[in-house]
Design a protein around this nucleic acid. Sequence first.
DNA 1: ATGGTAGGAAGCCTA
Length: 257
Amino acid sequence: MKIATWNVNSIKIRVAHLVEWVKETGMDVVLLQELKSTNDAFPREPLEDLGYNIALVGQKTYNGVGILSRYPIDVEYQALPGSQDDEQARYIEAIINRVRVCCLYLPNGNPIDSEKFTYKLAWMDRLIAHARTLFAYEDAVVLGGDFNVCPTDEDVYDPDGFAGDALCHPDSRARYRSLCHVGYTDAFRALYPQHHAYSFWDYQAGCWNKDHGLRIDHLLLSPQAADRLTAVGIDKGPRGKERPSDHTPVWCELEER
DNA sequence: ATGGTAGGAAGCCTA
């Protein structure tokens, strides 16, 4: 079972890239972030024609998450539990082929002296709490998405320059570690412990050409999922295309059980 | 070199 996460930065602009990529890779499940689309405006047909089921939590202009799956999708949550009044479309969770798949778009949090950063940290606290609840079920769980956190200095091209950024801030990293310490495994790091690799390159200042990137898109696995991990990758192909997203897909493969 | 680019919406905000 091949599962990917990809922040597409507008599904309307990127649908052709997405169609091409899933054809090329035969991905079974794709977690999507930054759709920037309402559910009604989502271009379903080209993906349904390829045999994908689609579950969406869309929103106009900003955010928006969704799941594509060759298997049936049983939606469990359409918002991250723990807040009554979170208006931002950043979370969808479903059971797919007996795996609990959680698609998240964690708040960016910049600038750090604003309410955006406190919102990010509070959102991470809710995520940790929910991840603990899920952990206790002892199911295969995949927490995947745009975490907007570089876990360590190995995951950013300029650690000193980003030291005060919300993506590398000690408070963001501490919460990311707490999430892992619940018992989740970073799929990429599990198989590539020493590897510099990025999943995001800013559009500005020629970052892509200079390989000035950050690794902020992650797949975190519960023990029951991690035990089935056979392969993981960051596919830089889509980032090099014409009019790309600023993120590229991260994927993993779980052995069928 | 304190900018730069991209997307969506409306004449700025988010990333």
